[in-house]
Amino acid sequence: AVSDRLIGRKGVVMEAISPQNSALVKVDGETWRATSGTVLDVGEEVSVKAIEGVKLVVEKLE
């Protein structure tokens, strides 16, 4: 799938994300809905860990 190429890519949080709420991230110039197990604020850099349906699963870039 096209989205599989995004695993391992870096992105930027466009809307705050919490474990209860998905929000938008920008990866390679494209906007995607994403979820995370932690709270992520706007502007934080993230890494794509997986794809669940049409959502990216991201975590904060260390």
Results as ranks from 00 to 15, higher is better:
Val46Ala: 01
Glu30His: 07
Leu56Asn: 02
Ile17Cys: 15
Thr38Ser: 13
Val25Thr: 01
Gly53Ile: 02
Leu40Lys: 01
Ala34Ser: 07
Gly53Met: 02
Ser47Thr: 15
Ile7Ser: 02
Glu15Tyr: 05
Asp41Pro: 06
Met14Phe: 05
Val42Thr: 05
Glu44Lys: 02
Lys26Asn: 10
Ser18Thr: 13
Thr35Phe: 06
Glu59Gly: 06
Gly11Arg: 00
Val25Pro: 01
Ala23Ser: 08
Ala16Tyr: 13
Ala34Leu: 00
Val2Pro: 15
Ala23Pro: 07
Val2Asn: 11
Gly11Glu: 03
Gly8Asn: 05
Asp4Phe: 00
Arg33His: 15
Leu61Ile: 12
Ser36Met: 05
Val25Glu: 03
Ile51Phe: 05
Val27Leu: 06
Ala16Glu: 06
Thr35Met: 09
Glu59Val: 10
Val25Gln: 01
Arg5Ser: 09
Ser3Met: 14
Thr38Tyr: 08
Val2His: 10
Gly43Leu: 04
Glu59Met: 04
Gln20Tyr: 10
Gly11Pro: 02
Val27Cys: 05
Asn21Ser: 11
Ser36Tyr: 05
Ala23Gln: 05
Val54Gln: 14
Glu62Phe: 11
Val2Tyr: 09
Ser36Ala: 10
Leu56Asp: 03
Leu6Ser: 01
Ile17Thr: 15
Leu6Gly: 02
Ser47Met: 15
Ser3Cys: 11
Ile7Glu: 03
Asp4Met: 07
Leu6Ile: 08
Val2Thr: 10
Glu30Gly: 04
Leu6Glu: 02
Leu40Asp: 03
Glu59Gln: 07
Gly43Lys: 02
Val46Phe: 06
Thr38Met: 10
Val12Leu: 07
Val58Arg: 00
Arg33Asn: 13
Val2Cys: 12
Gly53Cys: 03
Ala16Arg: 13
Thr31Phe: 15
Gly37His: 13
Val12Tyr: 06
Thr31Ile: 15
Asp41Ile: 14
Val2Ser: 10
Ile17Ala: 15
Gly8Ala: 03
Asp28Arg: 00
Leu56Thr: 03
Val39Met: 12
Ser3Leu: 14
Val54Met: 14
Glu59Thr: 07
Ser47Tyr: 15
Asp41Leu: 14
Lys60Leu: 08
Gly43Asn: 05
Lys55Gly: 09
Gln20Gly: 15
Thr31Ala: 09
Val54Asp: 15
Leu24Trp: 11
Arg33Tyr: 15
Val48Gly: 01
Ala23Leu: 15
Ser3His: 12
Glu30Tyr: 06
Thr31Leu: 15
Lys55Ser: 13
Val46Ile: 11
Val54Asn: 15
Val12Thr: 08
Asp41Trp: 13
Ala50Ser: 09
Gly8Val: 02
Gly43His: 03
Lys55Thr: 15
Arg5Ile: 07
Val54Trp: 11
Pro19Asp: 13
Ser47His: 12
Glu15Phe: 05
Leu6Phe: 05
Ser3Phe: 10
Gly11Ala: 07
Val42Ser: 04
Pro19Trp: 08
Ile17Leu: 13
